[in-house]
Design a protein around this nucleic acid. Structure first.
Lengths: 341, 341
DNA sequence: AAGCTTTCCGCAAAGCTTTGCATTAATGAT
DNA sequence: ATCATTAATGCAAAGCTTTGCGGAAAGCTT
């Protein structure tokens, strides 16, 4: 039991020399003779010595931990972004400590507090769907704690962020539908407090305008970003006297919910209704029919987020919002057969 | 810049008292007078004091960190298990530090080393698909480092573990297929070094026997547990002179690959070929047709894994393998319409 | 041979917390 | 008034590492 790890002191005692000599020998300090260095290094390897990060952290006032708060861990989108963040973090000798807000603003605040208590050097956050106030983020800013946000962001002038080209992508979806012959294009959005909701909504409007379509407020539904609530939103759309012939959802979970509801209603995708999603690559391929979607390069996004974080950490703050180009990948779900109509 | 966190020393200086008094006051030590306690606590809250976990860790020789190594982060199965682990960890005041082996034995070893360097108090591991040696785990055991494995396990007599009732579940799948009228039942397994491969294979054999079916080695394929390699395995099965009328895969990724290959071959699920998977709940519902599958209660599994870990951590070792009951949930993908045959 | 420069190593402080022991002041006892 | 308790607080060490500075020994110069 007890201390499973050996320390400089242990090595020093065994060699009958001082701790400082051991420390210097291990890092090739010029003050130490060659033979001494060799002797020390040999024993260190033999005893499997690794420096104690707690002691180092205490001394250097750095923990090399970076805190991540995401709405959930199990959505592929976040998991993949985390993966990207982690890859860059590891390169820089940092650990990613991950916490989930479970889409709750209370847990979001708790998680942030806990991570700060654990002395992470900074935070990377994607807001929960409930988060409609920003004071907890402002506090971080005023305490000068490095913070980077992504996807669902806020306070763009005070907090560096990485987001997708949401409005553009959204507009392209509408235009894509139009080019495929769809005319009554519906959109299922998320809570209005979220930046992605606003941005994608404005792209939706711009798309309609660009195509010369008349906006119909009945074709816009909000949902709670869950599979079930997306299904319900879709059902409401299907019950309209004049239902849509195309629909797209604000993220992958929503897109799956839409598809499910359409199938359960006995309608065919893409002929009765075209569907497009905002998703990551993987899931678009797994579902049937393969989903036309705006795919985020999630892993790369994660890497960029981490890079922005380290930039903030080392060279100090500067307002900066990185916009990641998404791509509209055409698959089956929006490929209406002309003949049928 | 500098120290964003304040320490006992800061509080002591401000109140003109000693550090020990501050420390004792904050934890209601009887030696400290009531007024002093109040004064100290008030300032501590005002200044937002939180104890420095590095200093505590150094003193108490505990980091309250638990290391997790999984084959990847983006698969829902692992993400969900991690979620479960984390929930219990948090309850016990522990942090989960997560590392991915990316299905590589080298990265698995690296991750373990890194986590140990970071002074996690113990490890929870699911082996990579490449892992065919166990010496790195034996070393952990001999160094008396708490270790719990799950899903893909080894050294059952030395390492506590949580696994599914793999053989049973596998047998039930075969019997389910049989009861639905399928007769040429294929199985796509994973690398033979993995425990899940072995166990599920033995269940497959037992199932065939129980149903009075003659085993046909051609109906057993191995794959590399990726979407693509599963597709390839399925294609090999479809090219057989006497192809299967039912197939199941060792995990969810594989099941999706099987489905994809079948669809691409222009065959219908479940009428031409029945499909069953080992998956978690979520994905079985998202795909089309909804996938009959042995669903793992992943979140609960994670919780049990964490509980076993803490048991090991506090009350010492005892050989123990928890077997989690899975459930075969019938959905569309194995529901052959009798009429067609 | 005495003084000076190198070469090599050890001391001690700092970073933060806990805790056994010592210290001080005050209270009570006689 | 003096001694013995009790109450309240401070000192210092330990846990581990880094690093400026001081010190000892050896080699060199003159």
């Amino acid at each position: 039991m007890g201390s499973r790890h050996i320390s400089l002191k242990d090595l020093a005692r065994e060699l009958n020399i001082s701790i400082s000599t051991v420390s210097r020998a291990l890092k090739d300090h010029p003050d130490i003779s060659r033979e001494m260095k060799e002797k020390v290094k040999k024993l260190a390897i033999e005893r499997n010595y690794t420096p104690n990060p707690l002691a180092m952290g205490l001394l250097k006032q750095e923990t090399r931990m970076i805190g991540i708060v995401v709405p959930d861990l199990v959505t592929h989108f976040y998991a993949s972004i985390i993966s990207g963040i982690e890859s860059v973090a590891k390169e820089n000798g940092y650990f990613a400590v991950i916490a989930s807000s479970n889409e709750s603003i209370i847990k979001e605040k708790e998680s942030i507090d806990n991570l700060l208590k654990a002395r992470v050097e900074g935070l990377i956050v994607c807001m929960s769907r409930e988060t409609n106030t920003t004071d907890h983020f402002e506090k971080l800013v005023s305490r000068d704690i490095p913070l980077v946000m992504f996807d669902r962001v806020c306070l763009g002038d005070k907090i560096p962020a990485v987001i997708a080209d949401n409005a553009d992508a959204s507009q392209k979806i509408v235009e894509h539908f139009y080019s495929k012959g769809y005319r009554r294009i519906a959109y299922v959005s998320g809570p209005e407090n979220l930046s992605i909701s606003k941005e994608r909504m404005s792209g939706y409007r711009a798309g309609l305008k660009a195509c010369g379509l008349t906006p119909d407020e009945n074709l816009v539904e909000n949902c709670y970003l869950t599979f079930e609530s997306a299904k319900m939103a879709m059902n409401r759309l299907l019950e309209l006297p004049n239902p849509p012939d195309a629909v797209y959802g604000i993220n992958d979970t929503v897109a799956f919910g839409l598809m499910k509801a359409i199938k359960e209603a006995g309608l065919k995708i893409p002929d009765d209704i075209g569907v497009v999603g905002f998703t990551d690559e993987f899931h678009s391929v797994v579902v049937t029919p393969a989903l036309t979607s705006v795919t985020h390069p999630t892993f790369e996004m994660g890497q960029q987020i981490a890079q922005l974080f380290f930039k903030r950490l080392t060279t100090g703050f500067q307002a900066e919002t990185l916009i990641v180009k998404t791509q509209l990948v055409e698959r089956e779900s929006s490929n209406k057969s002309e003949g049928r109509h």
